[in-house]
């Protein structure tokens, strides 16, 4: 895109404009996707509970999220008097921004990636580790008990699961031999016979299962939604928030869930590659494959949310530290041992 703009502009301006266009090209569809995926989530959840779900606003209730958005936009932003004002308003902005930032390195198609950097996967890790601050700052600046409890829970939870996610990603990186997201996708091409994707590899399949579960814990989705356990903590860290500030948390949460689904697709299921390495399947554009995979994982997330009861906090910590951490560590040893044995690095 930079070349396109540099026909008329000096290089710096063309680069700036191209990057801006790229950001908008990702952010706007993403916002739309978040609005729609909230509707999808409610529909799936309703269907599993034998309810109808949103069906009044627009055809099939498709416009429900937009109606909610409009309503929230028109509400008054209430800032409780005892809050630390600047931080209170900054926290939802941080959450939302960070949720959008990581999309910069997701490859949507062969060349369709905003920032094709060497350390793409590390960038995702770095940005997702920033997400803690939106929560923890919200909990602290609210100056209220339940948000504070929730913030502490959330940050402990996110730190715990980031450790095992890190080790799982190391397995993927060892096999792919690169941190570049595009490189990781391409490394999965016909990985096992004709199958595109690390997940078909017996050594990496357990890693994918753990990554999916860790992703649910990392994004605080059910059954790990202890930070928003309404029976214990009112509404968690967002208790004191109202109107648009609350909506930013809501949107940020779903953008993060979509990101986790996208990471599942990119790291383990071949990203924009079709599931089978057959020439006829490449006729379908790559981004359609990617979106189909994201949707599939989102369905799994919703399915789990609708069916699995909430974990107890000690069970959550036990799963993270006593099960996932040792197992993922073991698999780092297994994978690197196998790769050394087969001369993968030579």
């Amino acid at each position: 895109m930079t070349e396109f703009f540099s026909q008329w502009l000096p290089y710096e301006w063309a680069w700036g404009l191209a990057t801006l266009c790229g950001i908008l090209l990702i952010a706007f569809p993403l916002m739309l996707a978040v609005a729609m995926i909230i509707y999808v989530d409610r529909k799936i959840w309703a269907a599993m509970a034998l309810r109808r779900g949103p069906n009044v606003v627009g055809p099939l209730g498709l416009l429900q999220s937009f109606a909610d958005g409009l309503k929230v936009m028109l509400q008054e932003t209430i800032i409780p008097s005892s809050t630390s004002k600047a931080l209170f308003l900054l926290a939802p902005i941080v959450t939302f921004t960070v949720a959008l930032m990581a999309w910069a390195v997701i490859p949507f198609n062969g060349g369709a990636i905003l920032a094709d950097i060497n350390v793409g996967l590390l960038y995702v890790l770095a940005v997702s580790s920033l997400g803690v601050y939106g929560t923890i700052v919200a909990g602290w600046s609210s100056n209220s008990k339940y948000p504070f409890f929730s913030a502490i829970r959330a940050s402990a939870q996110m730190i715990s699961y980031e450790v095992s996610i890190g080790f799982i990603l190391i397995c993927v990186v060892l096999w792919a031999g690169t941190f570049n997201m595009n490189g990781i996708v391409l490394a999965q091409k016909s990985h096992v016979w004709l199958l595109n994707g690390f997940v078909f590899n017996p050594l990496l399949f357990p890693m994918w299962v753990m990554f999916l579960i860790s992703g649910m814990a990392e994004t605080q989705r059910a059954p790990f939604d202890l930070t928003e356990a309404e029976s214990e903590l009112v509404a968690g860290y967002q208790t004191e928030y109202s109107s648009m500030a609350f909506a930013l948390y809501w949107l940020g949460e779903y953008a993060n869930v979509l990101l986790m689904c996208a990471l599942n697709a990119v790291l383990f299921w071949g990203g924009y590659l079709p599931p089978l390495d057959l020439p006829v399947l490449y006729l379908v554009p790559g981004w359609i494959w990617l979106f189909a995979k994201i949707f599939l994982f989102f369905f799994i997330f919703s399915w789990v949310k609708a069916t699995v009861p909430r974990y107890r906090y000690d069970q959550l910590m036990r799963l993270g530290w006593k099960v996932f951490l040792p197992v993922s560590l073991l698999f780092v040893v297994l994978v690197s041992g196998w790769l050394m044995y087969t001369g993968h690095f030579a």
Partner: peptide, 26 residues
């Protein structure tokens, strides 16, 4: 040094500073 930059964010911002914040907040 993009690798160092990412490590700085992951280790210091993502882990160390969170623990600082924990202690100071409580």
């Amino acid at each position: 040094a993009e690798f160092i930059a990412m490590l700085l964010v992951i280790v210091y911002v993502g882990a160390v500073a969170v623990l600082f914040l924990f202690v100071v907040m409580m």
